[in-house]
Design a protein around this nucleic acid. Structure first.
Ligand code: DCP
Ligand code: MG
Ligand code: MG
Length: 443
DNA sequence: GCGGATCAC
DNA sequence: TATGGTGATCCGC
């Protein structure tokens, strides 16, 4: 339960004071209790890992290192400097849009969201420790002058569309990852402007918003780069092996897309902090992690990533969920359940979608999350069928809990896609988060 | 196929 | 007073 300082707006902030305020505002709350519980779980995972490590002997580790080296040789084979990959990410996106539309917000600390939750904050506010995913009422304690403006998704969608329009000129296959960021392969574009050398592999958009560019030989590195020199800057990794290895050497693993808070703790517990540590500890990592994860770690340590920017496949699921003031009376729970079914079906119809797995998600007032799924034989988008399935799942949950009432703060519905036949699974990008590129791992 | 956990934004 | 919503992946059953 502390400030998430990975995505810093700037250094130089009084973390001690900030963490104290967050703690004072959070302690004793059900939310806080749950966070503590989750932290204990992570600690237990680390302890289990520690025990496993102690059961290894040195010879085993050495053998694993040799195996890892062979895998690394294969990875080295695939190192590719032929593509110029750009990752673009708008600065403080929602906040920037609001500041554009209301310049009086420009030089004051400001955030987008509500008193319960903020979506993002501008750079003024970040100096006070105000961040995305922080409740507004805590942010106000950190920064009493903070102005909070409500979200206008439609506006952000429009701006996003305008920017994409521009980016398409540089790469028609541009791959948007969210409203405010995208990967581009500008190799072709650069070829069309032959007079550019490597240092000049930079480019501009005419948009009014500030943005970050990361420019590198692959997507993983470009993404990391776009987080450097913030805001409104750019960072380029020269296109040669030494430059990449230098870049990766002291890079904290936490900066890499896919390695989050928990993975970072687990790795840290065995002395892995930077990407070169991933190489140093390869013998251990191979034994501790799955083939998919380990391969991903090795690639990160080598600074190798995907060079193929391509649109994602069709969506695999569609869901809707809502947080509300406690509901515990069965009749009201079922009514909420029906509401969500209607909402989901409306969305499904917009894209004329079908799936066959229905998932009910609930979060108790203690923030315990549970999901229950049921797969139908046939895909359908019929409200009644969806509801009768979801209703049964909910009824089971209520019975499970009785005679205590089921006390919820959130309910959600999701509709999953039909599983594709095995052979049809297509490799997409890379890494662990979109696995599968490396099915051919050595024995 | 299911459910929990993790991650990104 | 008050701690979000959507989509995806991985792992261990
Ligand atoms: N937990 C989060 C993180 C982000 N967002 C939204 C608001 C952000 O404006 C937008 C883009 O996310 P970024 O991670 O790129 O954050 P920003 O663009 O706000 O800031 P930065 O300058 O660090 O990119 O997504 C959100 O709703 N919830
Ligand atoms: Mg951004
Ligand atoms: Mg972003």
């Amino acid at each position: 339960m502390a400030l998430n300082d990975n995505k810093a707006g700037m250094g130089n902030l009084d973390k001690e004071r900030i963490n104290k305020v967050i703690y004072e505002m959070s302690k004793g709350s059900k939310y806080y209790e749950n966070e503590q519980r989750k932290e204990e779980q992570v600690k237990a995972k680390i302890a289990a890992q520690h025990k496993q490590i102690q059961s290894f002997d040195a010879r085993e580790i050495e053998k694993s290192e040799l195996q890892a080296d062979a895998m690394l040789a294969a990875i080295e084979e695939m190192r590719d400097f032929s593509r110029t990959i750009v990752h673009i990410d708008m600065d403080a996106f929602y906040a920037a849009v609001e500041m554009r539309d209301n310049p009086s917000l420009k030089n004051i600390p400001m955030a987008v969201g509500g008193s319960a939750m903020l979506s993002t904050s501008n750079y003024e506010a970040r100096r006070f420790g105000v961040r995305a995913a922080m409740p507004g009422f805590i942010a106000k304690k950190l920064c009493p002058d903070l102005v909070i403006v409500p979200t206008n998704f439609d506006k952000y969608r429009q701006v996003s569309k305008d920017v994409k329009e521009i980016l398409l000129q540089y790469d028609p296959n541009m791959c948007p990852m969210s409203l405010d960021e995208a990967y581009l392969d500008i190799t072709q574009h650069l070829a069309e402007r032959k007079n550019f050398d490597a240092e000049q592999k930079t480019f501009r958009t005419a948009d009014g918003e500030q943005r970050m560019f990361g420019i590198a030989p692959n997507m993983m590195l470009a993404k990391v780069c776009s987080d450097f020199n913030k805001p409104n800057g750019q960072y380029l990794i020269p296109f040669n092996r030494q430059a990449v290895m230098d870049f990766v050497k002291d890079l904290p693993v936490r900066k890499v897309c896919g390695i989050g808070r928990v993975s970072c703790s687990m790795l840290g517990a065995m002395g892995v902090v930077t990407c070169s540590d991933l190489f140093r500890k390869r013998g251990l990592l191979l034994k501790l992690y799955s083939a998919i994860s380990f391969n991903y770690f090795l690639r990160v340590s080598a600074g190798v990533g995907s060079t193929s920017v391509q649109r994602g496949d069709d969506r695999k699921s569609m869901s809707t969920e809502r947080t509300f003031a406690e509901i515990n009376r069965p009749a009201e729970l079922f009514a909420k359940c029906y509401e969500l079914c209607e909402a989901l079906v409306e969305d499904l119809k917009k894209e004329n979608l079908k799936g066959k797995t229905i998932t009910l998600k609930i979060k108790t007032i203690k923030y315990i999350v549970r999901t229950k799924a049921h797969s139908l034989l046939n895909a359908t988008q019929d409200v009644q069928l969806l509801y009768s399935t979801a209703r049964d799942l909910l009824r089971t949950e209520i019975r499970l809990c009785s005679p205590e009432p089921l006390r919820l703060r959130l309910m959600g519905k999701s509709r999953g896609e039909q599983k594709l036949p095995f052979g049809a699974v297509k490799p997409k990008t890379d890494g662990r988060h979109t696995l599968l590129n490396y099915f051919k791992s050595p024995k």
